[in-house]
Structures are given as C-alpha cells and as structure tokens.
C-alpha cells in the first residue's frame, strides 16, 4: 500500500541574532491511509512545530528555513506556493491546535466560524451548511448544538472549546487530521466518545490521523504506530503492539515507565535532568546528557543513524535487545 504522507529528511530551523536554531532535525515519517500515528515526546521537543510545519503555518517571528520534503499522495508540499497550499490547509489536511483560544475569532459566534470554513472551501452554504454544523457538533458530544452555535468562544469552558476545534477540523472530511493535544482537558468519558468518533471517521473515509498527546494510555489505545521524538529527532518508531515491551530506545523506555509506572512512596517517577535548550549544539546522542543507562563511548561523539528492524526503527548505538 502506498503512503498518504511521506516526510523525508525534513528539517526546520530559524535564525535568531545570527545563529541558526534547529528545532526539527532530519525527520522521516510515513503515514498510511486510514492509519493513526501517535507522536509523543518531552515538552519542548518539537511536536507542535512539526504539526504546523507540515502546512507551513508560520508563526515564528524570525526568518525560518525548511529542508527536505513532505509528500502528500506523491506531491511535495514544500514545492507549493502559499495560494496552492491554502487549498490544502483545512481541507485535505486539517489541524487542531493545542491552544484553541488563540485560533478562534473572539468576535464571531461558533456558528459563524464553522460556516466560514465550509464557505472558504466551497463545501456548503445556507441551511445545508447549518445542518452539517449541527450534525458535526452532535458528533463531538454536544447534546444541545443550537445553544453552542449561538455562543462566543469566551462563553465556553476549556473542554468545550477544544471540541469546537475538533468539529471545525473534521467537518471538511480531510485526508489527514493532525490533532495536537485535543483531548488533554477532557475527562475519560468524553475523550473516549471523541476519539471513537475520530476513529470512525478513519474507517469510514480512510482519514489518517497524526495524534499528538502526552496521554500514553490514549496513544496506546488509538494509534497503530507510535513515533517518539526527543530534542527534535525522531528516536524511535514502533508498532503499538510492540510498544510497551519491545521498545528499543532508552528514552522510549524511560518515558513509558514514567507514564505507566506506579507511584512509589508518594513520589511520581521522572527522568533526571532536563531536555537541552533549542540553541544548544550537542555532539553525540542528546540523550547521553540525561544519564542514559545504556550509554557507551560512541554516544558522546557521534549521533546514531536511524536503523530499521522488523517491528520498527530506532536511533541508538546501544539499544535494548529484542525481547524473547
């Protein structure tokens, strides 16, 4: 099966006071039609930047540079100009941002904002559009869509706004949905309802999803494959069935054990030290600075290359062995 999205040797950096600061470093990711790919990693590692960079949504105030390619059905998005890309944004690829309030217009009712999306992509108008909006709001668990349609963003709670963003992204039936922390402020009941809905969209229309979340149990439940990012590098891509036991990269193991381990003596588990700063230039593998338990001499001098095996791929000089 050929992939929907192919991210190839992709880098993103910006220039600040005559220095180049790399945020994303030589990423390779494939997303197949109808597949959910989870993206996890430490806060500040570059997940939201990747989400926005795919559609070249520039909100860096500096001069930015993109390298490499992002193919959507074989067409390189990096070769498109802004007008051409605008036809893809919100239509073929939808993105739900991490901070809904900054992307909703405070002056417009919810009804008007969603209708603008339908109008912009020439999908529907008039009462046909109204009915689509009502149905879509029901799909993201609003029992009284009419009250919501009349509301302004500030009149809604945090979780309600997140669901509005999901509705706006799904209503165009995109080929790829990028969901950045969309259910992080929702309780387990509503989270399940929404993700089940997104899942249905995947199977009904073959939509693929890039699911960014800090909630590992959720990722394990909904993703087919998981990409783990650390300091702007993809360090491992692993099939979900193999993720908990068969992860090879030490950072993956460490992150998973923080998320899934039990609290001991009233202390929550965490990884010692912190992720490097964006402008730090690091020689070797960046994880050796976090007291990687498997570090060897090579880790201090050379950055490991991405290596593939049956179940996935990883970037590490001394990975955990395959189980069993």
């Amino acid at each position: 099966m050929s992939e929907l999205l192919r991210i190839e040797d992709f880098s993103f950096s910006y220039r600040h006071r005559n220095t180049t600061i790399s945020i994303l470093k030589k990423l390779d990711i494939l997303i197949f039609p109808g597949e959910v790919v989870g993206l996890v990693g430490e806060s500040g590692s570059g997940k939201s930047t990747l989400a926005k960079a795919i559609l070249r949504i520039p909100d860096f105030k500096y001069e930015v540079s993109y390298k490499g390619s992002i193919y959507l059905n074989g067409n390189d998005l990096m070769q498109l100009n802004d007008t051409q890309l605008d036809r893809i944004r919100g239509n073929e690829i939808s993105i739900i941002f991490q901070d809904p309030l900054s992307y909703l217009n405070p002056m417009f009712t919810i009804h008007r904002q969603i209708k603008e999306v339908l109008k912009h992509h020439e999908i529907a108008n008039g009462i046909v559009a109204d009915e689509m909006i009502r149905r879509c709001l029901l799909n993201v668990s609003f029992n009284y869509p009419d009250r919501i349609m009349r509301s302004y963003p500030f009149e809604l709670s945090g979780g309600m706004r997140q669901r509005i963003m999901i509705c706006m992204a799904m209503i165009t039936r995109p080929k790829l949905l990028i969901a950045d922390e969309v259910t992080s402020s929702l309780d387990a009941l509503i989270e399940k309802e929404i993700l089940d809905n997104i899942n249905r969209l995947c199977s009904d229309y073959g939509t693929s999803v890039l699911l960014i979340s800090h909630n590992l149990p959720t990722i394990l439940k909904y993703a087919n494959r998981i990409a783990i990012i650390y300091f702007g590098h993809i360090v491992e891509i692993v099939h979900v069935n193999n993720a908990q036991k068969g992860a090879r990269h030490p950072y993956t193991k460490a992150l998973f054990s923080c998320a899934l381990a039990k609290v001991k003596d009233g202390v929550f588990p965490f990884i010692e030290g912190s992720i490097p700063k964006p402008h730090d230039v690091i020689v070797g593998c960046p994880f050796h600075l976090r007291n990687c338990p498997r570090a060897i001499d090579a880790c201090r001098t050379t950055l490991p290359e991405m290596e593939s095996y049956d179940e996935g791929s990883f970037r590490c000089h001394n990975p955990y062995p395959v189980e069993g």
Binding site: L255, A259, P269, F270, I271
Partner: peptide, 8 residues
C-alpha cells in the same frame, strides 16, 4: 495537562 509524563 500539557506536560509529558516525566515533567508532570
């Protein structure tokens, strides 16, 4: 809510 498991 917006923090990874380790920083959380």
């Amino acid at each position: 809510t917006s923090l990874d498991a380790s920083i959380r």
